[in-house]
């Protein structure tokens, strides 16, 4: 894990979300519109290098939160501070893997992977080498030259994940990155993450998932959001030893934490 540098980021967190509010307005057939309050007074602080999972019922506003942090949308109220700077409405600070894979059909798998590096003017040769290494890690080497149309849903998602990792930003927003994967491939991805995490100066991650076990296996902290309008219902610090493996899921401490999260998810309000 990278050490904090500078007094500013030491005093506060790396990413600070303060009193965030967001309401959407759906146009009605007649006059006016219906207000859809989506985020209500969301505040949290993330330390540099932390891995945070966010769980919450479908439609509660998880993706909305990411759209705000990535600068795609503007909150009604509140602050988003990254590394001491206000970033509301600013794009290009984070790597964001959207819920859809959004692979460009006219680019091969390899060309899709290096998109972020290309936009940062990394020399092409270097970008391709880096991408090829990761493709091999993900068992996708033989598809490097194929177009996304010939990939399965799970393969597409892994390519999108790879593209996000490669973009090389300090903060990753991952919106259900493994949602389309079967249990086995998902587990492989967890192992891969668990394997490289201690070795690299890893980025800070916000990770949306519906899979409570996944959240516990990967995260330092799990945030539970309530139903829309989303409020932060619970912050659970996951103190399990790393590297974590599948075996953990049957251990007592793990099950206890899983129970706490499930209780929080399934109690209304």
């Amino acid at each position: 894990m990278q050490e904090h540098t500078g007094a500013r980021s030491f005093a506060s967190g790396y990413l600070e979300v303060k009193n965030l509010y967001k309401t959407y307005y759906l146009p009605k057939r007649e006059t006016g519109s219906i207000a859809v309050p989506t985020l209500e007074d969301i505040s949290f602080t993330v330390k540099k290098g932390e891995f945070i999972s966010i769980i919450g019922p479908s439609g509660c506003g998880k993706s909305t939160l990411f759209n705000l942090i990535s600068g795609l949308e503007i909150p009604d109220k509140g602050q988003i501070i990254l590394d001491g700077k206000e970033i509301i409405g600013q794009k290009g600070h984070v790597s964001y893997m959207l819920q859809k894979d959004l692979l460009l059909p006219w680019r091969t798998v390899l060309e899709n992977c290096i998109l972020g590096l290309e936009l940062q003017n990394v020399p092409k040769r270097e970008a391709i080498n880096t991408a090829n290494c990761l493709l091999a890690d993900f068992n996708l080497s033989e598809f490097a030259g194929s177009y996304p149309a010939s990939l399965s849903g799970g393969m597409r998602q892994r390519v999108a994940f790879l593209r996000t990792m490669l973009a090389g930003r300090e903060l990753l927003l991952l919106d259900e990155p493994f949602g389309a994967l079967d249990a086995y491939t998902k587990s492989e991805m967890h192992d891969w993450l668990a394997g490289i995490w201690p070795r690299i100066s890893h980025p800070t991650v916000l990770f949306i998932t519906h899979d409570v076990e996944e959240a516990l296996l990967l995260s330092d902290n799990v945030y539970v959001l309530g139903p829309r309008p989303a409020k932060l219902k619970l912050q659970l610090s996951v103190s399990l030893q790393r590297p974590r493996t599948r075996k953990l899921v049957v251990e007592k401490g793990f099950i206890e934490m899983k129970r706490i999260l499930m209780d929080s998810l399934f109690t209304l309000g």
Binding site: G71, L72, K91, K100, L102, L104, G116
Partner: peptide
């Protein structure tokens, strides 16, 4: 053109 693809590139700072 898929506006989400445009969003993706915007986020990447294109």
């Amino acid at each position: 053109v898929d506006q989400d693809m445009v969003k993706l590139l915007l986020v990447m700072g294109a």
